[in-house]
Computed example of a mutant assay.
Amino acid sequence: MEQKRGPWTILSSREGYRNPWVEVTHHEVLRADGSPGVYGVVGFQNLAIGVLPLFADGTVPMVGQYRFPLKRFTWELPEGGGPKGEDPLLSAKRELKEETGATAAHWLEYGQADLSNSVTDERAHLFLAWDLTEGEAAPEPDEVFQYKRVTFGELLTDIHRGEVDDALTQLLVLTAVSRAIMGELPDRPRNLILDQLPEARTGGS
């Protein structure tokens, strides 16, 4: 049965591939101009979860790992996936603990984003965590992490230099900067962020 989806008409759909993390669906469609075409969509079984953890000294924990699709090592903020039926905050707390060992007294979800909306339905939830307590990391058996702490200012500079190109890390940092400047974060994390920005970005002279 034909189905309308925006300007497209879906003539038929079939599942091409599925595993515990993703499913690929092949659609035969009519484009907006009536011409035939195909549309492949990657559906994600989990929500994307990203955490910006702020220690009291203004540092943040970075997680380094080899990313199989990219064929290279990357540095990122703590991030992972959470079941769609679970409160994203619970997933964020679990990811932070697993990847860094840290726990946080305070949490705030301060943004959401579609990560690759032309071919996937992946939705990301952005969390800020502060008043951290250090602990022992507990990664999954197939996860091999490196770990370092950098100042928030150093991380922001690395992003601007193109040295940290993970999309979720960039979203976490740049959204936090924007919300801090606009006064939309609680005082404690807002001050930790603003204290490390160049004066031109915070209205200083």
Results as ranks from 00 to 15, higher is better:
Glu79Ser: 09
Ala102Gly: 06
Leu90Ala: 11
Val63Asp: 02
Lys84Met: 05
Gly64Ser: 03
Arg94Lys: 11
Arg67Met: 11
Pro78Thr: 02
Glu98Thr: 02
Leu90Trp: 12
Pro78Ala: 00
Phe73Gly: 04
Pro83Ser: 15
Ser91Asp: 04
Glu86Ser: 10
Gly82Phe: 01
Glu109His: 07
Ala105Glu: 14
Glu98Asn: 11
Arg94Cys: 07
Leu89Pro: 02
Phe73Leu: 04
Glu99Gln: 15
Tyr66Cys: 08
Val63Phe: 11
Asp87Met: 00
Leu70His: 09
Gly111Ala: 08
Glu109Cys: 12
Tyr110Gln: 03
Thr100Asn: 12
Pro88Ala: 03
Thr103Ala: 14
Lys93Cys: 06
Gly101His: 12
Pro83Cys: 01
Gln112Tyr: 07
Gln65Ala: 14
Arg67Pro: 00
Thr74Cys: 10
Ala104His: 11
Pro88Leu: 07
Thr103Phe: 07
Glu76His: 10
Phe68Thr: 04
Met62Cys: 06
Glu86Asp: 13
Gly101Lys: 12
Trp75Asn: 05
Glu99His: 10
Gln65Tyr: 14
His106Ile: 06
Leu77Pro: 02
Gly101Arg: 12
Tyr66Ala: 08
Thr103Gln: 15
Ala102Arg: 08
Gln65Asn: 10
Gly111Pro: 08
His106Tyr: 13
Gln65His: 14
Glu98Ile: 02
Arg94Val: 00
Gln112Trp: 11
Leu89Tyr: 05
Pro88Thr: 05
Tyr110Lys: 08
Leu89Asp: 00
Pro88Gln: 04
Gly81Ile: 02
Ser91Met: 00
Ser91Cys: 04
Lys97Ala: 14
Leu77Ser: 04
Tyr110Asp: 00
Tyr110Glu: 05
Leu90His: 13
Ala104Trp: 13
Ala104Gly: 12
Phe73Tyr: 15
Glu95Cys: 04
Lys97Asp: 09
Pro88His: 00
Leu90Gln: 13
Gly80Cys: 00
Ala92Met: 06
Leu89Met: 06
Lys71Asn: 12
Gly111Arg: 09
Ser91Gly: 07
Trp75Ser: 01
Phe73Glu: 14
Leu96Met: 09
